[in-house]
């Protein structure tokens, strides 16, 4: 599933500055959150990792990735139980978003 700006486009109602501001915030925060998430999983502190996934999931929701969001929600819940079933899938989702956002800046 590909990310889109359709929600931000609808929300901003043709205000490019607002859309740019939101993309800038996500681009600034998502890599930091993703690094922190990796650190938490390395430490096997899955509760902490789940909290970070919860934050990241909101960003996934802004980019209208319904199926990815479902999987990420499952990942968050499983992490709270100490299970890492969807580590790889979640990494793919976030990498896809980062690539999409970086490309949108070009």
């Amino acid at each position: 599933m590909q990310p889109t700006f359709s929600y931000l486009d609808q929300l901003s109602g043709g205000n490019p500055e607002f859309k740019k501001r939101i993309i800038k915030i996500i681009l600034n925060e998502l890599p930091k959150d993703f690094d922190l998430y990796h650190y938490a999983t390395e430490l096997k502190n899955y509760h902490w990792a789940a909290e970070i996934v919860h934050r990241i999931n909101q960003k996934i929701a802004f980019l209208q990735m319904a199926e990815s969001l479902k999987l990420a929600d499952k990942h968050e819940n499983l992490l709270r139980e100490g299970k890492t079933t969807y580590l790889n899938e979640f990494n793919e989702i976030v990498n896809k978003i980062l690539k999409f956002l970086e490309n949108s800046q070009e």
């Binding site: 929300l11 939101i22 915030i25 925060e29 934050r55 909101q58 960003k59």
Partner: peptide, 14 residues
Amino acid sequence: DDESVSREIVRFLC
């Protein structure tokens, strides 16, 4: 809200 994008969106809507 601990999530900054959400805060920005509420600000924009307000």
